[in-house]
């Protein structure tokens, strides 16, 4: 197991950042394919892999910071909270289940809870954890199909009429009170729900 030593991952991080800059300038071609974020979280979980963590940090921390600033946090507070969220990702990597959420979705739930703690100074009661079944490793096919569903959800969101998309954003960025939220999203949520429901049914069966 690697130690949380800053030297190796930082140099990797700097190299990647440099590569990103070169790519932006058009001098280096970088693959368009999304990295497999779930595999990186698993590497953090199983090996304490700081390079995997650095790659996750580089992608998600700036987005979490932007999310928190859109929710009304100042830049300094958003920076601090984004670091907290990423540290939580490291510490709670064992709770990540790719058959039930994408990494982005899981990061969102951590960031949302941090926002409620910090900005609203309230608690958010969480549903009871589901106990681990005898087979804690999720099915690869389930995880793959959920990732596909989530990708399609992203496409559908991008294609929504601007007005409707803006309403959804305002709800999630904390700009609408609960009484103003209407859940008619026009988004393909049924497939994700059904897939997760099946996974939960299997988990329940394995527990009995």
């Amino acid at each position: 197991m690697q130690k949380a030593d800053a030297l190796v991952p930082v140099s990797a991080y700097v190299a990647r950042a440099a590569l990103g800059r070169l790519a932006a300038e058009g001098s280096v071609k970088v693959s368009e394919t999304e990295p497999d974020w779930a595999a990186l979280v698993i590497r953090v979980r199983d090996h304490g892999d700081t390079q995997a963590f650095a790659a996750l940090f580089r992608h998600f921390a700036p987005r979490v910071k932007a999310f928190l600033m859109k929710s009304g946090a100042g830049a300094a507070l958003a920076e601090e909270c984004a670091q907290d969220v990423m540290a939580t990702l490291w510490q709670k990597a064992h709770l990540f289940d790719p058959a039930r959420a994408s990494v982005a979705t899981w990061v969102f739930t951590i960031a949302r809870n941090r926002r409620i703690d910090t900005l609203r100074k309230a608690r958010r009661p969480e549903p009871e954890d589901l106990p681990w079944g005898p087979e804690p490793e999720p099915d690869q096919a389930d995880a793959f199909e959920l990732a596909e569903d989530t990708r399609r959800l992203g496409e559908a969101l991008a294609q929504l009429p601007e007005k409707q998309r803006a309403l959804i954003e305002r709800a999630y960025f904390g700009d609408l009170s609960h009484t103003e939220i209407a859940a008619e999203t026009g988004l393909p949520l049924g497939t994700i729900k059904s897939r997760i429901r099946l996974a939960l049914d299997r988990l329940r069966q394995s527990m009995t």
């Binding site: 987005r63 994408s102 549903p127 999203t185 049924g190 997760i196």
Partner: peptide, 21 residues
């Protein structure tokens, strides 16, 4: 619980689409 996961996925998609700060 499954329906909540679908709504959480909307939040995940929005985070993914945020212009990075």
């Amino acid at each position: 619980r499954a329906r909540l996961s679908a709504f959480d996925a909307v939040g995940g998609t929005l985070i993914e689409d945020c212009d990075p700060a």
